[in-house]
Design a protein around this nucleic acid. Structure first.
Length: 453
RNA sequence: GCGGAAUUGGUGAAGUGGUUAACACGCCGGAUUGUGGCUCCGGUAUGCAUGGGUUCGAUCCCCAUAUUUCGCCCCA
């Protein structure tokens, strides 16, 4: 038997419905924030990732899914979304578009050659946004608020935003020196990885999970103290806008992010979920004002963030949040004889063309089997075709909840179903969603007056 | 890259070094001659991840591989 590759998943059934629902929420929110969808290739030249993400990062050093193609080109399956979007921005000269800044979002699969575990796969799906062309701190706050809103609309509670600033190049260089000076006397106390980091990327020592226990960490210099005037002002402005948007956040000096292209604002969004381990970080991002020029475009400020959809859905499941997913069908058409079957074919077609979710029998089951099938499909109504009754232009329809049966004129069936089904839509919210019995509406439009699909 | 646990049918699983591998759910069929969801009856693994080894004999013991799963590093 051929089975799926390590760290990959088949998503189908209810799981697939959840994914689609989350995507719908993302699309709706992005539309309101006026972000345009962009779809870039899943594979790119390897060099793109080496140059953008950084040679020394773990993602590039040990997680790249790369190979040679038949033309002997070095190809990599994208490990994240930003690099491809920036490449596209430059290649398509979007910096010349009449509408600026350019606000984009993507939602697609990424690949990392990792050891799979809970909340981490080799094929993962990320949704993310990128804003290019504006350095306004207000955009930083907007991007964070967009992410937070998506989590809120989906019903996640306990969302925590951690922010930090890496400052501009001057601040960062300055801080880098301070860090090296600080840690060098203690080099023998550091773990093996951090000894290497001390030379290559001292910032990452700060979020080392091993060395964070050390005494020297507590007194380590904090970057915020080494920001120059301008960077400090900028960071405070971001916080001001977050306050205005009523977003709770915490300044966390240990957030440095694993990709090299970030400067100024960096942030991570985590869910406060028990037993979620290190998988509680649902998304993260930051500003990258030199990435575009680094990849050969004009000097262009940018900011973005990404969230893992798989991990998000895991979080929703852990929190037992019911999504308003439609289940079941409107009507199941039953038949026995061949002439009834012929009528069923056309009737089902007509029902479908008029917007009803209609099903019929394909497995040659007896009437008993068809009743069972209709129940499995959670059909709200049953239509029982009968040759004798059809001759009289009559059709028998049964409400599968009340068990009430009625004879209806053939021509009247669409109207009848329409009327009957609308009584199923009763719900104390009017979000337009259909909520199954016992499910609650999480659209939150009533509370926030914001999003309504 | 490192470490722990697991792998029996469509599903959940029990089990033993020795003839036909429990049980339950599901599914299909029948009792019920065109109104079911209850009940009863019947059917449903030449098979216990794969490859070696130990043995008279292995699903059960040993080794390896694969996969799943949970951690570490890192990340979403």
């Amino acid at each position: 038997m051929i089975i799926k590759q390590k760290g990959c998943h088949d998503i189908y059934g209810l799981e697939a419905k959840k994914w689609n629902y989350v995507s719908q929420v993302i699309d709706a929110v992005c539309e309101r924030y006026h972000y345009d969808f962009i779809r870039t290739p899943i594979f790119e030249a390897s060099e793109l990732f080496h140059r953008s993400i950084g040679e020394e990062t773990d993602v590039v050093r040990k997680e790249m899914y790369d190979f040679k193609d038949k033309g002997n080109r070095d190809i990599t399956l994208r490990p994240e979304g930003t690099a491809g979007v920036i490449r596209s921005y430059i290649e398509n000269k979007m910096y010349g578009d009449s509408v600026q800044p350019v606000k984009l979002y993507y939602n697609g699969t990424m690949y990392r050659y990792e050891r799979p575990q809970s909340g981490r796969d080799r094929e993962l799906t990320q949704f993310g946004v990128e804003v290019l062309g504006s350095d306004d701190p207000m955009i930083d706050a907007e991007v964070i608020s967009l992410a937070v809103n998506i989590y809120k609309i989906l019903g996640l509670k306990g969302i925590k935003v951690n922010i930090n600033s890496l400052g501009d190049q001057e601040s960062r260089d300055n801080y880098r020196k301070v860090l090296i000076d600080y840690f060098t006397p203690y080099v023998n106390e550091l773990c093996e990885d951090c000894k290497i980091r001390l030379e290559k990327n001292p910032l990452r020592i700060l979020d080392c999970k091993i060395d964070c226990q050390l005494e020297i960490m507590k007194n380590a210099p904090i970057i915020v103290d080494y920001l120059n005037e301008e960077s400090k002002k900028r960071f405070l402005a971001v916080q001001k806008y977050l306050d205005l948007l009523d977003i709770e956040y915490e300044v966390n000096p240990s957030i440095v992010r694993g990709l090299d292209y970030y400067n100024h604002t960096v942030f991570e969004i985590e869910a406060d979920i028990e037993d979620f381990g290190s998988q509680n970080v649902l998304g993260g991002g930051g500003r990258y004002n030199h990435l575009v020029s680094q990849l050969g475009g004009p000097e262009t400020p940018g900011i973005g963030f990404a969230m893992g959809i798989g991990r998000l859905i895991l979080a929703l499941e852990k929190e037992e949040i019911q999504l308003p997913i439609e289940e079941g069908i409107d009507v199941f058409v039953m038949y026995v004889s061949d002439t009834e079957k012929e009528y069923a074919v056309t009737l089902v077609q007509e029902l479908r063309m008029n917007g009803f979710k209609a099903e019929t029998e394909y497995m040659n089951r007896g009437l008993k089997g068809q009743f069972k099938q209709a129940d499995r499909l959670k059909s709200k109504f049953l239509i029982l075709l009968n040759d004798e009754e059809l001759k009289e232009n009559q059709i028998k329809i049964k409400n599968n909840q009340t068990k009430e049966e009625n004879f209806i004129e053939l021509d009247y069936i669409l109207y009848y179903l329409d009327e009957q089904l609308s009584s199923f839509e009763e719900s104390d919210c009017n979000c337009g969603h259909h909520h199954e019995e016992g499910h609650h509406c999480h659209c939150q439009h009533k509370d926030d007056g914001e999003i309504n699909f």
